[in-house]
């Protein structure tokens, strides 16, 4: 069950997306997220869809694998949709008590669902094609300027990469402890909120103990391998932009420009509103 979390887990493959400099992917993800929420109209939406499909195809990560990752956020999706569905003011279609189902609400709910799904797919495409180490290298180098302001960029990057490495180990461990407590008659499924929260203690305490033990071991193992902070460290995989990275930046800007044009075309020329139908 917990092993289904594909969000954030690296998927090894040989693809042009995998080979891109992580800084390109970080910038690209950021730009894509902005584009999802700023631009308007069905044309821009189609463009965002096409762009996403193109990238997923290029990445060689199976589409079904990506969709599986969405399962973990399904509750968030439903809540968001429901909020938009019932709390958007506009032309009322049906009314149940204080809940009003509006025409605008339906539109908004669909739009938000699409945005959220694209947001998750877009960000997981980055984490699926970038090893945590590359990702943190990208962040470390991309944010190097902050280091001069006293922000411990290297330390933060190292912490993130270790956290990502231990997520699958700790989820597996959670599974194991849960089973062990079930074998002692634990019941995680029934009862009210308080009873369920109390039932979590036998799960959480061992999990914390184990996390601390692992952290201790790991710190010692790192020290034994001469880790002493970021000073004087070299890189096995230093970041250097290649021609592909430059082209990727160009493609990104082209996409962003196209989104601007399509939005302008929709609002100014076709006179469309904020929503898409």
């Amino acid at each position: 069950m917990l092993k289904d979390v594909t969000l954030g887990q690296y998927y090894p493959a040989e693809s042009v997306i995998h080979r891109l400099d992580p800084r390109v992917k970080l910038a690209g993800t950021l730009l894509y997220l902005i584009s999802l929420f700023v631009f308007q109209g069905p044309l821009a939406l189609v463009m965002a869809t096409v762009f996403l499909i193109l990238l997923i195809t290029l990445s060689k990560v199976p589409f079904s694998y990506m969709v599986k990752g969405l399962r973990t956020i399904i509750i968030i999706l439903i809540i968001t949709a429901a909020m938009n569905l019932f709390f958007t003011t506009g032309t009322v279609i049906v009314q149940f008590g204080i809940f009003k189902l509006t025409y605008e609400g339906i539109q908004m709910a669909i739009l938000m669902m699409i945005r959220l799904v694209y947001l998750i797919l877009g960000t997981s495409l980055m984490t699926l094609t970038t090893t945590p180490n590359q990702l943190t290298d990208g962040l470390e180098k991309g944010l190097r300027g902050l280091g001069k302001l006293g922000v411990p960029v290297h330390e933060i990057a190292m912490m993130m990469s270790i956290a990502l490495r231990f997520i699958p180990i700790l989820t597996e461990e959670t599974d194991k402890i849960m089973k062990a407590q079930k074998a002692r008659g634990a019941d995680f499924e029934t009862g009210g909120l308080i009873k369920r929260a109390k039932a979590m203690i036998p799960l959480l305490v061992p999990l914390f103990v184990s996390a601390f033990r692992r952290a201790n071991d790991l710190a010692m193992a790192m020290e034994a391998r001469c880790y002493h902070g970021g000073e004087g460290r070299t890189k096995m995989k230093p970041l250097r932009y290649t021609a592909t990275d430059r082209n990727a930046y160009l493609l990104l800007f082209a996409y962003f420009a196209a989104m601007i044009l399509l939005t302008l075309f929709w609002t100014k020329v076709l006179g469309g509103g904020k929503l898409f139908f």
Binding site: Y10, P132, S161, I162, L164, R165, R214, D217, L218
Partner: peptide, 10 residues
């Protein structure tokens, strides 16, 4: 508890 990176070679 002694493997730091997420890829063997790293």
């Amino acid at each position: 508890n002694q493997i730091i990176a997420s890829v063997v070679e790293e």
